[in-house]
């Protein structure tokens, strides 16, 4: 094990697509960085701004949200709502001084295990370039 800094990523994955996609990546024995801590939610629109803000406040270097492709939502229109919410939240965290790249929304279907592995690698590399979250130092001991 190297002592190199590794980002901590909180992942909210939708039960029907992205979580199954991650499962697919696992059962197909694909390799991807283990930086993501997965939280399974029933729909990507279940994730509200508070959850993401709290994740950043408690020291997450990035937050990843995975949902179904537009039009494929199990609950018909959940992911459209997510898209709008995340677009605005990205602007808000940018105003406050957190790089918007730290919040990432991707559409990954249950069949796209490879896509999931690729996204995880990309995200890890991007965040490594950015460095630790600026909130990490000031994050008090939460919970």
């Amino acid at each position: 094990m190297s002592d190199e800094w590794e980002p901590k990523i909180v992942g909210f994955l939708c039960n029907w697509c992205c979580y199954a996609g991650a499962d697919m990546a696992g059962t197909s024995r694909m390799h991807y960085p283990a930086n993501i801590r997965v939280i399974r939610v029933m729909c990507s629109s279940r994730i509200n701004a508070e959850m993401i803000i709290k994740a950043f406040q408690t020291g997450a270097d990035a937050v990843f949200i995975g949902g179904c492709h537009p039009g494929d939502c199990h609950y018909v229109d959940g992911n459209y709502r997510t898209k709008k919410r995340i677009d605005l939240l990205k602007r808000l965290i940018e105003h406050i001084g957190i790089e918007p790249e730290r919040l990432r929304l991707e559409w990954i279907s249950a069949a796209e295990g490879e896509e999931f592995a690729k996204t995880m690698k990309e995200l890890r590399d991007d965040i490594k370039k950015l460095g630790p979250s600026p909130l990490r130092e000031i994050a008090r001991e939460a919970i």
Partner: peptide
């Protein structure tokens, strides 16, 4: 920081 103000703003 910055939970209170971000939640309110959002």
């Amino acid at each position: 920081f910055p939970v209170y103000h971000l939640i309110r703003a959002f």
